[in-house]
């Protein structure tokens, strides 16, 4: 049976981390499509600072790490772990909350109202 998802997931997380560590420091720092259009059309000034703009990881930097490449790589790995952890947590919780699948004789729906 080709059921082992765990190896695949671990390999995927390692690949994601490798992208964050080795590739993201070389990503383009030009404004993205929306930022560029906002500047060209003259609505970029409407942007307000995020309420969390003083977060130690704001804008994918890391407070206390001056080397931009190391900071970007570190922020990326933290973000991958946070996203994965939150995802596993949420999807795992759904699994726990899901009622046991019943093959027959389902209980009367509580909403029947009859």
């Amino acid at each position: 049976m080709k059921t082992n998802v765990r190896y695949f997931v671990v390999a995927g997380i390692l690949l994601a981390a490798a992208l964050a560590i080795f590739v993201s420091p070389f990503a383009s720092s030009s404004p993205d499509g929306l930022e560029r259009v906002a500047a060209d059309e003259g609505f970029d000034g409407a942007a307000d600072d995020s309420a969390v703009s003083d977060s130690p990881l704001a804008d994918y930097g890391v407070e206390g790490i001056d080397d931009d490449r190391i900071a970007t790589a570190t922020a990326g790995v933290v973000g991958i772990l946070a996203t994965f952890g939150l995802g596993i947590g949420i999807f795992g919780l759904l699994r726990v909350m899901r009622p046991e699948p019943t093959s027959e004789a389902p209980a009367d729906p509580a909403t029947s109202g009859a």
Binding site: V5, V9, A16, L19, A20, L81, F84, I88
Partner: peptide, 16 residues
């Protein structure tokens, strides 16, 4: 379920 967690984490990485 772990695959869905991986998809989220991988998209985070790709968006960097």
């Amino acid at each position: 379920a772990p695959m869905a967690g991986l998809v989220a984490a991988f998209i985070f990485a790709l968006q960097l």
